[in-house]
């Protein structure tokens, strides 16, 4: 079964088995965004609580789905907790870059319709966002080899983008 280990790295399975920041937050003060992949029925709910200084104090993840969508959201929650909204947005850009998705395609509506796959430049966007470190999220790099799963990996991130938009309005 060669190839599968690129997708199902141990750290991914670990986040799938023991998802971080699983739960709900009270809204308000937190904001909530729902992401949905109509293709497979996967759902991610993102709650974030942003304070007056623009820091994400609390994050919680709900929903259900496959190992890739759930572990990606779990890693995302760990990566953004305590970060500023600006940093979180840069992380979204960096992660989308890892998934080879162009920055302009990051919408706040969770829609993936415009998403393009560019296998020529999988690393470029990360270099562009200099001091952003993806850390454990790098483990998701293997997803790019399985194009149908990219939507699973980005579901949580599109939902986060939606939540950040929401938080900046309120």
């Amino acid at each position: 079964m060669s190839g599968l280990e690129d997708l199902y790295r141990e750290i991914i399975l670990d986040h799938y088995r023991s998802p971080r920041n699983r739960g709900e937050l009270e809204t308000p003060p937190a904001v909530r965004a729902d992401g949905f992949n109509p293709l497979c029925g996967d759902e991610i709910v993102v709650y974030i609580d942003v304070d007056d200084s623009g820091t994400i104090n609390e994050v919680a993840i709900g929903g259900q789905g496959c190992s890739i969508s759930q572990s990606s959201a779990s890693m995302m929650s760990a990566a953004i907790k305590g970060k500023t909204v600006t940093d979180a947005r840069r992380l979204i850009t960096a992660f989308k870059g890892l998934m080879s998705i162009h920055e302009t395609d990051i919408g706040g509506d969770g829609s993936e319709a415009e998403m393009g796959i560019d296998d020529q430049a999988p690393h470029i966007s990360i270099d562009n966002t200099d001091d952003v470190s993806l850390g454990d999220l790098e483990a998701l790099r293997g997803v790019v080899k399985f194009p149908v799963r990219i939507k699973c990996a980005t579901l949580g991130w599109n939902t986060l983008a939606q939540a950040l938009d929401e938080a900046s309005v309120t």
Binding site: L4, L7, D42, G65, C66, S67, F146, C152
Partner: peptide, 13 residues
Amino acid sequence: VHPHDVAQVLDQA
């Protein structure tokens, strides 16, 4: 095991 993951492993076979 989520159906997506099942199908992925089956596809490799």
